[in-house]
Design a protein around this nucleic acid. Structure first.
Lengths: 352, 352
DNA sequence: TCCGCAACTTGGAACGATTCAAATTTATGA
DNA sequence: TCATAAATTTGAATCGTTCCAAGTTGCGGA
């Protein structure tokens, strides 16, 4: 039995309906809605009662139109299905929700064409700002063309390609990939490792380049040799990593440790090692990057770099909100620290 | 060097600007925008050129206001950080994007209070519909109160609690938990297993109840005994599952197989088995539920039920879009089939 | 009694689009 | 050449809200 207060109506209740029912003007109802101190206590009570009674729902779109404001932020991700970005999105939504914004979601699946479409479509909804983790190969010119200067942009995780990129007028939040990989490498070196490979990722990707640079930095600082064929590329997933494992052992002496591009690659590599009868964490040291949920639960648990994606999401949202408050400030580049988490997969080299 | 066509302007270009520049009325520009055949070919070209030149961006909010339409759908998830839901969200966004809708995201983190807030906030943006995977314990009354009848709702994954729920007027998309667990159990029975436990999950959760029911169904159909202490509860994660492993072996003869609540539990159980020197897939059969990414990569690979969350996301979007096209149709309850994926973790019982 | 002031309240014009009936221009045929 | 039909174009109202200038009311003091 439906009560009167749960109307089956499909026509939506507006300010005008409430005003008519209370015999006041729309202006007054509007003031009540926004908690203005101007309205009489008694009037306010009457109006609020009526709002409740009729089940009024505020129409933010109309208000935004009139006030020339916006209460949404577009979040465009290259791969929402990836747990890292799912966590990131959760953090973004958390922080934006707290600030009264709503998240417009767009997932591009690493397709540049779809990125353009998604951005264009979301922009029509007039977001106050955009958080973009670009698809691989996405260029600054493209993004500049669709977003223009009309909406503040915060770039996450990857730089845009193209010569326009370096001095493009947007904010950035990046992970400290280089330092992270350096920490991992230094950790292995401190354990006594000398023959250390860099395993996984595509040399084309900017994050892979940065991580590799950190590895090189630590190796050189320690005066250790960097064998070019100890940099092994593979797609950033477990399956391909497991398949490429053999490439580590083409020549002797083979490496006894590997700094991996990320956790997925590291877990895949450990799988591949097992299959060859090599026990990671005892015969061979492995480090990852990201600290995904499984890292702590693998056998052995994975030494890796925690980037706390949810916190990064919150941070991204904060940075963008800050930009909205202060549109004239200089573009800002923020580099988020990552933290080395030592677990069982890293070990000294086996005694000869 | 910024060109004239990439204006640094912050004032937004509207129909009126274009109309003025082309010396036509706003009505004409509007017709051009929507590709009406009414406008003269020559006029159209002129207007389109000007649109491009000024970098006009359509204001969908204004159009929606006037046309009393909406071009967004709210997606509210109990746990976006969970890969299952991240995949689901990706599927939803994919399908909605294709249909010209934009996704308004909300994540509730299993908090009922936050669910209310998020729903209320998203509703103010006037979505055409809502897809909700409710937080555990969320009730039909609450949801009915915030959403009312004003917006079509599609419920995913979980039923709402409360007596109002059964005949509440919304559509549902559920997984076929019962049949899935039955298939897994039947598969084990076909392998010759007789002593089969049901492992993991909270007996309170509706999905766990359904899966358990499927297990019972298959056992009874095969005339096999169901030992009450062979139903072992644990939190749906690896750590707790591994810890509870011992409970399987309290009495003899112990079970030789387990139907697990989900993959996380199954993987944890396998870990626990290893620790007791029992080799899953040889000494003990294990099945999971969900077919998460790691299921195929564990050792042994996990026999499980694939629920293809991305496809479910697309399906959810489709169902909601269908409802929008036909608001008067009867509420629909859809049960998505799950598919048994046989891998190495299921095996015959060890020879006596 | 009248004025001034505080405390409320309100009409009507925006915001950026769409719609439709009506106006205008162009084309057609006798 | 002119009436008429066809092809374009347009003015003004409208969606649901906000904002501002101006209006109303009641009250205390001169």
């Amino acid at each position: 039995m439906a009560t009167d207060s749960a109307p089956h109506a499909n026509r939506k209740i507006t300010l005008t309906d409430i005003a008519a029912a209370c015999d006041v003007s729309r202006a007054t109802v509007s003031l009540v809605l926004r908690g203005s101190p101007l309205v009489n206590k008694h009037t306010r009570a009457r109006v609020e009662e009526e709002l409740r009674r009729q089940g009024y729902v505020y129409n933010r779109a109309a208000a935004n139109l009139r006030r020339r404001t916006s209460s949404s932020i577009a979040l465009v991700l290259n791969d929402l299905a990836n747990p890292f970005f799912a966590e990131f999105a959760t953090g973004v939504d958390e922080a934006l929700g707290g600030a009264g914004y709503v998240t417009l979601l767009g997932s591009t699946g690493e397709s540049i064409a779809r990125e353009q479409q998604v951005l264009a479509s979301l922009l029509e909804h007039d977001p106050a700002g955009v958080i973009l983790s670009p698809a691989e190969g996405s260029t600054a010119d493209q993004v500049l063309k669709t977003i223009g200067m009309r909406t503040p942009l915060l770039l996450f995780n990857r730089e845009l390609a193209g010569k326009a990129s370096p001095d493009a007028p947007w904010d950035r939040l990046m992970l400290d990939n280089q330092r992270g990989a350096r920490l991992a490498t230094e950790h292995l070196i401190a354990l006594g490792q000398k023959r250390i490979a860099f395993f996984g990722g595509h040399a084309g990707s900017s994050s892979c380049q940065q991580r590799h640079a950190g590895y090189v930095e630590a190796m050189q600082a320690a005066g250790l040799p960097i064998e070019p064929h100890w940099r092994i590329e593979c797609a950033p997933n477990r399956v391909d990593a497991a398949a490429q494992c053999g490439a580590l052992f083409f020549d002797t002496p083979a490496p006894t440790a590997a700094v991996c591009y990320n956790d997925a690659v590291a877990l895949g590599l450990m799988l591949g090692l097992y299959q060859r009868g090599i026990k990671p964490g005892r015969d061979f040291a492995v480090t990852g990057f990201d600290d995904i949920a499984e890292a702590a639960l693998s056998a052995p648990p994975l030494t890796t770099l925690a980037s706390t994606p949810r916190a990064r999401g919150r941070q991204a949202a904060e940075l963008l909100l800050q930009r909205l408050r202060n549109p004239q400030a200089e573009p800002q580049r923020t580099v988020a620290a990552v933290q080395l988490v030592v677990r069982g997969s890293s070990c000294p080299p086996p005694a000869i």
